[in-house]
Amino acid sequence: MHEMGIIIHLAKTLEDTAREEGLVRIGSVTLRVGEVSGIVTDYFEDCWNYFKKRHPVLQDCRLIIETIPAVTRCSSCGQDYETVKYGRECPYCHSGETWLVQGNECVIKQIEAE
């Protein structure tokens, strides 16, 4: 359960932030998750709802997930394309020399807190 591992670190970062900023309650956390990051968002939410109860400051914290679309760039022709639709091979020139520009992220964007 790789989602659980990420949640543990997410909770730790939020607790540290709450301590540093003197926050008593975090109402929501917004994560930006890449389309090909390998994170299963349903599992992720289940893990979060289970785990947040252990942390008083996170008790009522909603998890908001924004998806970052995956984009691949072709080194041969320079075009960008949708990773999920076409995979590793460039749909324009059929080169296999391609690399992921974005879509592998898991970033804590912001929190709402008091």
């Binding site: 970062t13 932030t17 900023e21 992220e105 898991c106 804590i108 964007k109």
Partner: peptide, 8 residues
């Protein structure tokens, strides 16, 4: 709202 923009 506090912006973090940190890797999870």
């Amino acid at each position: 709202v506090i912006e973090l923009n940190k890797n999870a």
